[in-house]
Simulated scan of single mutants.
Amino acid sequence: MNRKEIGERLRIAREECMYSRQKAANYADVGTTTLQQWETGSREASIETIGKLAREYGVSPQYIIFGDSDSGVSSTPRTDYAIDKPDDDYVYVPAYDVEVSAGAGAVCLGESEASKYLAFRKHWLTARGLNVKSLAAMFTKGDSMTPTIPESAVVVINRDQTKPLDGKVYVIRIEDRHYVKRIQWLIGGGLRLISDNKFYDPLDITKADMEATNIEICGQVIHASYDLPD
């Protein structure tokens, strides 16, 4: 790894998210002189520190270290950033503090405003024909969709895709709870919500239930990201 190139990318990422050197140094719990040495390449930051700063700046650690990242996604609290900056290689998908149940159900924590944004490469969205303004991210809880989606994953949904297709995975809101499940249409117009973890039984919703109950298809799950276990 080239320390000067890594330092230059650290500096550029910091300046692009409009962090002062003092603010970034405070976040990394170091002095401004140390941060300056990292950015000039005269001193090497640890991998852990690079990862911490990269996530704060809204870029992937792979970008800082290697100069490129085709699929990396990183969370960032930069809620002041536009969702799509014309001079940026990234687009920013809003993430909501809504626990999407992958188990027995989780009460919605509120979804009126995004709590943070997730950064994705523009060409990744373009290759898949996705519109960033139609995307939203939520956080899973429970293990009923393992191994497809593990617990504590981030799922991104396409809110344009709200008409269920057999075999696809969706986020469904039932009253004040959100679920991530695989969908199967039932004879008569109902839906079967299927867990990929065979320990959990399917949940059938009749057409009458759908008409009488506050049920909403929030969108199709098009991406999931998660940390590998230690």
Rank of each mutant, 00 (worst) to 15 (best):
M1I: 11
M1C: 10
N2Y: 02
N2R: 10
G7I: 11
R11S: 13
A13T: 14
R14P: 10
E16V: 06
E16M: 09
C17P: 01
A24Q: 10
A24I: 04
A25I: 12
T32V: 14
T32I: 14
T32P: 08
T32A: 12
T33P: 00
T34E: 10
G41H: 02
R43D: 03
R43K: 14
E44H: 07
S46N: 08
I47S: 06
E48A: 15
G51L: 03
G51T: 14
P61A: 14
Y63T: 11
Y63G: 04
Y63W: 14
F66M: 12
F66L: 15
D70S: 09
G72L: 04
P77C: 11
Y81N: 02
I83R: 10
D87P: 06
D88C: 08
D89V: 06
V93F: 03
Y96N: 10
Y96F: 15
D97S: 14
V98R: 11
S101N: 04
A102C: 15
A104D: 06
C108Y: 00
C108R: 03
A119F: 02
R121D: 12
W124A: 09
W124M: 11
L125P: 10
G129V: 08
K133Q: 12
K133D: 13
F139T: 15
S144A: 15
S144L: 03
M145F: 00
M145T: 09
P147T: 06
I149Y: 01
E151G: 13
S152G: 02
D166H: 11
K168W: 04
V169G: 02
R173C: 00
H178Y: 12
Y179G: 01
I183P: 05
W185F: 06
I187E: 14
G189F: 02
L191P: 07
I194R: 13
D196G: 08
Y200K: 07
Y200H: 09
D201F: 05
P202T: 12
D204Q: 02
D204A: 04
K207H: 11
K207V: 10
E211P: 01
A212K: 12
N214R: 00
I215L: 09
E216Y: 00
E216H: 01
I217T: 03
Q220P: 04
Q220D: 06
D227T: 13
D230Y: 01
